[in-house]
Structures are given as C-alpha cells and as structure tokens.
Amino acid sequence: MNQPALNRMPSDAEVVATPAVIEVRDLITHYGTRKILHGINLDIRQGEIMVIMGGSGSGKSTLLNALLGLLRPTSGAVRILSQDLNAISDVERTKLRQKMGVAFQGGALFSSMNVLENIMLPLREHTRLDRSTMQIMARMKMQVVNLAGFERLMPAELSGGMIKRAALARAIVMDPRILFCDEPSAGLDPVVSSAIDDLILSLRDAMGMSIVVVTHELESAFKIADRICVLDKGHILTIGTVDEVRNSKNERIQNLLNRRTEAEILDPDEYLKRLTAAGA
C-alpha cells in the first residue's frame, strides 16, 4: 500500500506552531528502591505520532504507565492537555481519561463480553445515549478498524490481529484526543503487523489524534513515527525524526538499531546484582 499522503511529515513551521498535548517534566519513578526513570523530559504535540522505542528493561512500559496515570511518579510532572495528571481530583481525572484512549498490548478485552459489548463499554459508562445509538457508534468504529461483521464473537474466538483491532476500536470509541498503543505489532506476523501500522496512520489522518506508540519493533517504528524517542536504562538517548534517529552517531542507538548485543548484559555478576536489586 503506497500512500504518501498518510506518511506525510509535518513541516517545521507546523511543528513549532502545534501545541503539546502531553508534557513530561523531570519524571523520576522508582520500583521499590530501584530507580527506573531518571528524569524524563518529553513533549508530544497535537496530531503527531510519537514512537517510544527501547529494548527490554529500558523503562518504556514504565513511562507509558506514568503517562496513563497508572503509576505515580516519585517526582516530576505529567501534564496531559495542560492538566497535571497527578495533581487533579478524581472527578477531573475521570473526565480527562475520556479524552484518552488506550490499546493495550494483549488487547485487555473483557473476556466475559463479546466484541461489540467491549467496544460499547466506555459509551455505556460515560454517556447517557440509548442502546441503539451506542451500538451504531460502536459499529462505526468497528468499520474503521475493518472488523465489521465480528460483533458477536467473544475475545477468545479472535485472532491476534483481530484482538488488536478490537482494542483499537474500543480505544477510539469516545473519539479521544490522544491515543496510546502499547506494542501494537508485538506477536503478529509481518503482514498483519504492517496492516495495523497502516491502521494507526489512517486513524491519525482521519481523526487528527495525537498518537503515542510504545514498541520495540524497529520496522514498524520507522514506518509510522513522526518522531521517535529512544529510551535506554531510564534515560532518553535521543528524540528526533526517523532520519535523525537512523543516522545518529550515538553508539547505543546504533547498537539498538543493529541488534548488537551488549557485552555487559551477559556478565553474570552484573545480571545477578540486577536481579537482587529488583527483588529488594
């Protein structure tokens, strides 16, 4: 599928003019006594696709949880649509969360409900629409993610790719301003994975959402990203466009891009130390 319009990069002028929808300032988090994120600063702008990339243990999942408000940071601030996620009241946070959609790695579809009920759930809980209206809205989103006709299936009956599509449909059913996708292509074959990438691109273009994608898949990151943020051991190595990251001189980034193993991870003493630190 060759659609340059979908992959269009915003011009520099556009980038500067668009306000940030997510602002992360000096974010530090701990897991027990172990420091996971060492002061992250990150802006995600209106309408861009920001890919947060890094290897296992780089802190990308922790960063995502902090952005979603599932994890309270030790210090620093996460501002979403100009509201500090950890300083506002529960009522305000509930309202704010209706402007955020999240597609989890494993889909996180509720196993006791069929696909349509899953997608309708946010509408049922947050709106006073009647049932048929909610069904129409949910079916429209299913159409968007190419899942029409599978309304009555249970999550257990879906394939991996269909689960991701259903999760995306549920994430966008409230027409959020910001969409978060956790490892959208993990566990999928290349063809399906590429289709999901196209879907994410078309969502941005059709609905003007800002999209945050957390992934370790290089190919998909390069395909969909407007900007990439490379995380390593809780630090940001670089934030830049695809070309900037690809041509970076930084050795650690090149290691990540070229899948070179790092010697120190294989050092058993170091590894044991990490394990005990994790257990403490």
Partner: peptide, 8 residues
C-alpha cells in the same frame, strides 16, 4: 488497567 484508563 484498561478499566482505570477508561475512567471506570
């Protein structure tokens, strides 16, 4: 987590 981020 999904419930929490949906505001439920």
């Amino acid at each position: 987590d999904a419930l929490s981020v949906m505001g439920i």
